[in-house]
């Protein structure tokens, strides 16, 4: 589920919260090149097909995603998985902010509407080009990883304790920590800031939905990040973005998701390929030049 999919009314984030977001960003991140030069990496897995579906309405969004080779990177990221069937990951005009994983056809869909929503939210939050890039990068990575996590949990028929949308969030946050440190920081902070801006923009909280409100997702996301990378994200606690009362439990929360991953997903993962994936410098990764 995308950062902005639950926005019933899109408003500009409050000025006060924008200040906090910028402060958080300045404390923990910097600018973000999404793609650049070549680096050695495994070839994209044949078992995951990629498709940027045509769209007139969101042509600019499609072009941006293609330029940054978002789906090619997703293919590479998923390549260590020994999938029981072929999957397709596509970007598409959905007519809605999100589409669920199509288990029958094995199709993961990232909606152009979601990416456009992320861009709108980010533009409402900052006018600084680098900061905007960081926000969009974090939002797009969260959206893509959330969709991929949701599919992975279903493809491997994982027993589901807790709410599935939270599970996809937590697994996405867990997976974000597997990138290089710089990419992880940009992704986590960018995604979290967008959850914050979405909270400000949404206004009324929806307690009925199976999807947690963005404020909860903000803290859940940061908690997994802090629990898994305390050194890198200590600033979240020091600056008060993650309250101490929650922060104390984050190592345990991270270990819960790690244990679940080890028990149910790791048996489907090629460990040698994981090493190669983890060794990628994602900031400078060029999927076209992958071996």
């Amino acid at each position: 589920m995308l950062v902005s999919s639950r926005l019933r009314r899109r408003r500009k984030a409050s000025a006060a919260y924008l200040g906090i977001g910028l402060f958080l960003a300045a404390a923990l991140t910097g600018s973000v090149p999404l793609a650049a030069t070549a680096a050695a990496a495994p070839a994209p897995a044949a078992q995951v097909r990629a498709s940027y579906d045509a769209t007139a309405k969101f042509a600019a969004v499609r072009t941006m995603l293609q330029r940054h080779k978002v789906l090619e990177k997703a293919q590479v990221f998923m390549s260590p998985l020994r999938l029981p069937r072929e999957l397709t990951i596509r970007t598409a005009e959905c007519g809605a902010p999100s589409l669920p994983f199509d288990a029958a056809k094995g199709v993961i869909t990232i909606c152009y509407e979601a990416i456009a929503g992320i861009q709108d939210l980010a533009k409402g939050a900052t006018s600084d080009a680098d900061d905007l890039a960081a926000l969009v990068t974090g939002g797009v990575m969260e959206e893509a990883l959330h969709c991929m996590a949701d599919a992975i949990l279903q493809v491997f028929d994982v027993p589901m304790w807790g709410r599935p949308e939270d599970a996809a969030d937590l697994l996405a946050a867990f997976l974000m920590l597997k990138f290089d440190e710089r990419t992880t920081t940009v992704a986590v902070i960018g995604a979290a800031r967008l959850f914050g801006y979405a909270t400000s923009a949404v206004g009324k909280v929806d307690y009925v939905s199976e999807v947690s409100p963005p404020a909860q997702r903000f803290y859940n996301f940061l908690c997994i990040a802090y629990g898994g990378e305390r050194l890198g994200f200590q600033g979240l606690v020091d600056k008060g973005f993650l309250p101490n009362a929650r922060a104390r439990k984050c190592a345990s929360e991270y270990n819960t998701i790690r244990k679940a991953f080890d028990l149910r997903l790791m048996p489907h993962v090629d460990p040698d390929l994981v090493v190669k994936i983890r060794a990628i410098d994602w900031r400078n990764y060029d999927a076209d030049k992958a071996p």
Partner: peptide, 23 residues
């Protein structure tokens, strides 16, 4: 009442690892 606190920060009630009463 809201995802936002009066000081413009996120409402820390949502930082609780438990759901809210209604949830």
């Amino acid at each position: 009442d809201s995802g936002m606190a009066k000081d413009g920060k996120l409402n820390e009630d949502f930082a609780d690892e438990h759901g809210t009463g209604s949830q």
